[in-house]
Every structure is written in structure tokens, then in C-alpha cells.
Nucleic acid binder design. Structure first.
Lengths: 208, 208, 208, 208
DNA sequence: CATGAATGAGAATTCATTCAT
DNA sequence: GATGAATGAATTCTCATTCAT
């Protein structure tokens, strides 16, 4: 009957968002129920509707909230200080940072949601696209500059991104999402170091 | 030709499986309803239960059926004749074949289902794992042989697979599943040819 | 568990429509619940959705069904044989028939629904308008003919309708719908006979 | 003028009552939500409960309040000065006044509520019954006197009321509530003048 | 084989109401 | 006086599933 816990809860909205994201990531949008999210947030289902008009809105808000939480990590990938480094070091550092970023539990949850719901919900993809491309754009700028100087083999930037994002993404998908047996105990560096070497061998021609 | 008197009895089971797979791939397991699958198959929902005991079973059967349909294409990836080629040619051919395989509409549907449902259903992943690894194993055998001969840089085979599956998978995910704007008009060869060159540059040392 | 009563129910749809109309008339659209309608029809709420896609559709169907049930009585009001009578007899007969029609339980239920929901739902009104006007049109035709012959004082037909429908409608509203104390025991003839006389006195000039 | 220091304290209660009546009249009791009423009144739903214990009480209070607003208009219908007139003039004046009263927007809203909720809520009807009958009683008194004098044909007063209220009520229902096409542009006098003539022709015998 | 009819168990959502502040 | 936050009890609607025929 009493609609209120005694001590004022500090940030119900945030707690709900957090709980909702967890449940959505674990179960997927359809299988996640408002009742379960409410339980996870320690409130009643009706409380969810006090803060968000619908399940779809809660989902969107939860995802957007998570995006902004990831924002600093994403921005760090394009940190200005790394851009002083020569291509080999820069790319190595970038690969390591990106591997850590992708393998982070919070990022993985986003990837899971994006892969599960994105194909049916382009607007969901759009939430991240802008953000990601804004930060990756800085990286591409660095590369284009060095391509122009002949330090890096000229290449379609999209292809370049696939080169080093692809293996990392595949690792996260196989190892962390699908939990394929053979990949289960593959540590990040086991992929990243050979990847850096191999890709760089192909990308940065005359240094070899 | 056949002495069968009536018009060929329709392969109801097969049609249902086909329709079910389409609907599951498009909507995801939870959002796909038995009614919609039935409609897609041209039967009533009750008929589904004549052939399959439950939605979960139908899903599993539909996925398994699709796996066996992809089987020939997968097997071709490990075709014995390509294994006569030297590493550069072999790897190039493999990359091209795999890119075509991954980008094929039927494969994409499987990937979509695996990415969406796999994280919550390890047994679903298992259905494909065996199959895929059986065929990829042949490829790995080839490589191990050449690594031993010094023709290919020695490397963890899992990492090797990530190297060349990763970018292809990423391309399919970005371009075909998430339909990211920038990737929408990236043709397979635009990725595959630079990928072959670059990776090979790193993988096959003395040729450079 | 058993989804089916043993002996096949003869006309579930009709029963549901009937029950729905009763409940809608008694409670109004909003206050009537699918659960109560189901109970009244002896089925489960889900069964309602087997026959009708939504509550709104069920409402509409129930009202339309009732309209067609009333159709014969309405048509009788414009029966051709009464049209052979001279104006005084014709109007008297019409008034009596209409009073009986309006005071009939089934008609009253329609009036109740129309008065309660009509102001917010013009399409509901439209369901009856056509029907009613079709039949009343015949009456008006008779009158116009006699107006032309000078047997009936010329008059706007809408006003004419208000003249003799109005008191009858008011009687039904006061007596049967609002159950105003003073009207509770006013029998139809107590209104109809003076009404016939009085109105006719004004309407059929030279006969007096 | 007034020595009150601050800006006049708003009549919250009155505003709420006003807003509540509007919303109830437009949507009906069930469909009207406390939230919407609060919004219309410019307060929060909780504030409603400061002034009224429940939705039902608010409804009742809003209706009663409106009744007292209509009171003067109702009383005017039985104004003493008109009672000096001879029957023909008196009845004509009464008809005109009543038509104006019924067609007034505020009265219409009351009628709408009474027709929609009255059948399920006798106590709602009672709120007005007393009021109305008190004032109409005066009119009936006038008539009874003239009936006794032979100036008006003797008649059950309830029937008399139906005679001239009925067409007016029907006009308001058809034209203003149900918005029936044919009645939409029927002005009050188009009904009232013929009605006066016709009814009087029947009611006031020797003048004809 | 196949279906029409039906259902039980949820699911999202609404809403009058409460109460500490 | 007034409100923000919250809730319990409906309510509409969905859907996998059943089974007599």
C-alpha cells in the first residue's frame, strides 16, 4: 500500500535504465518483460511507466543512456596524444585500445543488442552510428594524412576499418557472444599482437 | 516419368520448415508467431503441431534443415582440388569463396539467427559449430602443412581464422545486416582483393 | 484444459454478439469489459478475440447485428397497407406503432447506446441513420403527397418528424431510461392518444 | 478596490469543478481520467484529491455545481411576469425560452451527461429532477388554473410536458448531440414557431 | 492429415489513488 | 495547499497450444 520507500531513492530513473539495459541485453527486446525489468530495478511495473511511456521508449532510452556511458571510452580511442605517434605505434596502440573496448562487458552488451535487434530496427543502429563514426572519423583523418605522405598504403577507409575491426569483432562474437569452444580461452593479446604485425606488414609498406 | 497418379503430394514438412526459417530469420524467435509461420507456409497453425511438437522444436528443425542446405557450399570451401594450389593462390581462392558464401542470402539469414539467438541458446550454436569446424578443419590442415614447410608464417590457427573471417564477417554485418550507410555499396571484391593482398603480405613472408 | 464443450455449440458468434450487446447497453462501451461480456456469453475472453479482432470491432458488430434484428419492425412502420388509410387514421396508426417500437426493450437498448456513445462516435450514429431514414422516408413520402393534396398542412418534414417522434422519444427517455418518478407509470396510450388528437388537430386542418 | 495584497487567490476548487465538468461532458464518466481533468484544470492529479475524495465525488460535485449555474435560466422559465399573459402568448413565450435554454451549450452538456450516465446512476438524475420539477411546477400551476377555467383543454400535465418538451429535446438530440445530417442546419425558430401553432391549435380549443 | 474452435497463461498498459514531503 | 513518485488492481490483447472432428 505504501507507495514509497522510506529513504528517498537517489536516482530511480537511472536505476531503471541500468536494469532495463541489463535485461534487454540478456533476453533481447521481445523476451524481456516489463515485469522482469521492474523486478531487476526493484520497482513495480507501473513505476516503469511513470518514467517512460512505453517499453519501446524504455528500450531506446536505455540504449541511448548506455551509449553516452560508453562515449568517453570511445572518445579515448581517438585521443589526440596518440596521434603524435608514427603509424606503426599509432595503429598498434589503436588496436590494443579497441580490443579492450570491444571486449569490455558493457560494450559487449551493446554489440549483443545491436546484432540482435539492429537488423529489424534501423533507428536503433542510427543511435550508435553517428557516435561511432564521429570518433572513428578522427582515426581515419590521421590515416589519410599518412596515406597522402606515403607512410601508409592508400586504401578505401571503409576497407581499412574492416581490416582491423573485423578480426576484433569476430573474436568478440565467437568468444564472448557465441562462446565457441575453441575461442573461449583466447586472450586479447593473442589476437591483437599478430594482428598488429600482420596488418601493419601489409599496410605500412616501406618500413619493412 | 513417375507412375504416381495424383499431382505430386506436396512436401508439407519441407514447406513448413522453409517458411518457418524465413519468418524466424526475419522476425527473430520470439517475435515470430506460429500463426505467421503457418500463414507463410499456407497451412493452419494446428497443422504445424502435426509435424512438430512445439515452436522450439520447429525452430530447431528449421535451422538444422537450413544447415544441411548450406552444407554443399561449405564443403566446397574445403574442396580438395584447391588444395593443390600454392598458399597465395589457395588463400586468395578461399577468401573469394568465403566472401561469396557469407554474402549469400541464405548464409546471411543463418548468421542473423545465430547472432540474435545464439547468445541465449548455446545448443543452437552447437548445431553449426560442428559442421563449420569440420569443413574449416580441412583448410587448417592445409595451412599447418605449409606452416611446417615454412611457406606460411606459423600462427595459432584460431587467430588465422579470425584474420580472414573477421573482415568478411564484419562486412556482412555492417553492410547486409545493420545496413550501415557507408557500407551499403561496398562490393565484395572491394574488400576481398585488398584483404588478400594485405593479409598475404603478412602471412606469406618470403614472397615479398 | 479441454478447449471444447462436448456438444457443438450452435451459434457461438451470435451468442457472443447478443451477450455483448446486452452488456454494452447496460454498462456503456467503456465500462463494459471483455471479461464480463465473455462471462455473459459463456466463453472465455480469448474466445471473443477468436471471433472479433478487438473490443471496438465487437461493439460495432453487436450494434450492427442488433440493427438488422430491428429492421423488420422498422420496416413495418412504413408498411404499404397502412398507406391506404386517410391521414388521420394513418398518423394515428403510425404513432401507435412507433410508440410500441420505441418502448420495446430492444429498441430502448439501442437508444440508450446511441445516446450514450453517439455524441463521441459519429460512425456509430451512421450505422442507424441510413436504416432509419430509409424507412421513415416512406412515411414522409405519404405525407408529402397529402400535403400536396391539401389534406395535411404543408410543413418541413424534419419538423413534422420532431412533432411526433419528439414526445415519444421524450417519454422513453424520461420513463424508461432515466426512470423519472412521475413518468414511471405512464402507459403508452396515455401519451399516444392525446398526442394523436392534438397533433392531428394542428396538422389536418379542415377536418376539424 | 479590494485591499487584498497578493494577486487574487485563484478559486482552485471552482476551476477544478469547471474543468472536470468539461471533460466529463466531452468524454463521459469512464473515459474521463483524473489526469486529464487535472491537466484541464492546470493542476496535478494529486491536487484533485485535496479537494475531492474520489473521482465519483468530483463528478457529482461538478454536476451539482453546473446545476446551480443553470438555476437562474431555469427559474426565468417560470418567471412571474409571463404568468400574466393569456395562454397562447404564455405558451409561445415558454416554448421559445425553453428552446433557447435547451440549445444553450451549457444545458446541452448537462443533457449529454444525463443521457449517458443517468440510466446507470439514478442518483445523478435525482440531482436535476428536483430542480427541474420545482421550476416546471410553476408552469404547471399556471396551466392547471387555466384548465380549470376552460381556457386550456384538460390534460395530464405529464403529457402536456411531453408535448412541448419532446420536440425540443428531440431537436437538441438529433441536431446537437448526434449531429444528424438533415437536422444540422435547422434553426430553433423553424421548429418552435410551427410547434407553438400546432400544439396550441390542439391545446387551446375555443380560439380556433 | 488437417482444421476450426477454443483456452490458459501471460504481456503491455492504464488509472484511480496514496502519501511523505 | 500541492506535488512527485509510486502502486495495485484491472483491462485489453496475444499467443502457443489443444483436441474433437
Amino acid at each position: 500500500m505504501s507507495p514509497r520507500p522510506k529513504n528517498p531513492p537517489p536516482d530511480r530513473r537511472g536505476e531503471i535504465l541500468e536494469a532495463a539495459f541489463r535485461v534487454f541485453a540478456e533476453k533481447g527486446y521481445r523476451a524481456a518483460t516489463m515485469a522482469e525489468i521492474a523486478r531487476a530495478a526493484g520497482v513495480t511495473p507501473a513505476a516503469l511507466y511513470y518514467y517512460f511511456p512505453s517499453k519501446a521508449d524504455l528500450f531506446r532510452a536505455a540504449v541511448t543512456e548506455r551509449r553516452s556511458q560508453l562515449q568517453p571510452a570511445l572518445a579515448a580511442l581517438a585521443s589526440p596524444d596518440a596521434r603524435e605517434l608514427p603509424p606503426r605505434e599509432f595503429l598498434g596502440a589503436l588496436l590494443r585500445a579497441m580490443a579492450d573496448f570491444l571486449a569490455d562487458e558493457r560494450t559487449r552488451a551493446v554489440i549483443r543488442i545491436l546484432l540482435a535487434e539492429g537488423p529489424r530496427d534501423p533507428s536503433l543502429v542510427a543511435i550508435f552510428q553517428e557516435e561511432v563514426y564521429g570518433n572513428i572519423g578522427a582515426v581515419l583523418g590521421y590515416l589519410e594524412q599518412h596515406m597522402a605522405q606515403g607512410n601508409v598504403r592508400p586504401m578505401d577507409p571503409r576497407v581499412f576499418l574492416l581490416f582491423f575491426q573485423g578480426p576484433l569483432l569476430a573474436m568478440v562474437i565467437f568468444r564472448d557472444l557465441l562462446r565457441l569452444g575453441p575461442y573461449r580461452d583466447l586472450p586479447n593479446p593473442a589476437l591483437v599482437e599478430p594482428l598488429a604485425e600482420t596488418i601493419l606488414a601489409g599496410l605500412v609498406p616501406e618500413k619493412r
